[in-house]
Amino acid sequence: MPSKPRDPQAERAPWPISLGALLAVLFINFPIFIIFLYAFTTDEQTFTFPLPGMTLKWFGVAWGREDLWAALGLSVRVAGIATLVALLLGTLAAAAVSRTKFFGREAISFMLLLPIALPGIVTGIALRSAFGLFDIPFSFWTIVIGHATFCVVIVYNNVVARFRRTSWSIVEASMDLGANGWETFKRIILPHIATALLAGGMLAFALSFDEVIVTTFTAGQESTLPIWIFSQLTRPRDRPVTNVVALFVVLIMAIPILLAYRISQRDGETQLSR
């Protein structure tokens, strides 16, 4: 692909704007930097500054913590399955809403967006009372269901945006040239929405991975990684271990988010925001 010509309107920003942007970036990211710093401190109970000394021992301690690994594993599995559910349901919902006209279509497209518009605490309470009403025991699957509510929206939004810009005659063209429904889906629709699915899926994964509120209401005895970190903060011992974990979470989550950002930049249409 040839590179796009530079926008002639894009001039250099005047220095006060550049300075403002720089300050905003510092303000947003400074706390993250602090967390990184204290992953290396020798002081295990308080946040003293300057650091009394630097050490790598917390990395070793974190490595040996069974409960940490259990929480991490749970979070990855929950996020993975919630994302898969979201990819399937979100795509189907997007196809139904953009491809067909049926009674209540507007209402359905609005209700699909509700889980994101509503505060997480409302979703959490609603799910908890629903589970209680039907006597469903809290488990791994109740967490997955809770997370899927907002993950579906993310995928739905991305795919709907793609479909909106899609001329449906490409589907007709494919059928015209001899492809049946399944082959048209495989060869035309799926490749066409692939980047939207990738961006939506990665974003859904990232959101599920750090979700706290809905999880608190839908989890039983198990704790996902964010809940584990939260519980660690109330204990004074081994405090820097949580900082080590945070450091790794940030580094690992940066990959899908950057990728999703790159994809949506290239396509110029997928929504990264919720």
Partner: peptide, 29 residues
């Protein structure tokens, strides 16, 4: 259905498959 008829169509908006090269578009059938 369309895929069982011995006719082909040139669409008003061309309906080329945007993710394929020109050659793959032409060879699609």
């Amino acid at each position: 259905p369309p895929y069982e008829r011995d006719v082909n169509t040139v669409f008003q908006d061309y309906a080329l498959f945007p993710h394929m090269t020109v050659l793959d578009n032409v060879a699609y059938g």
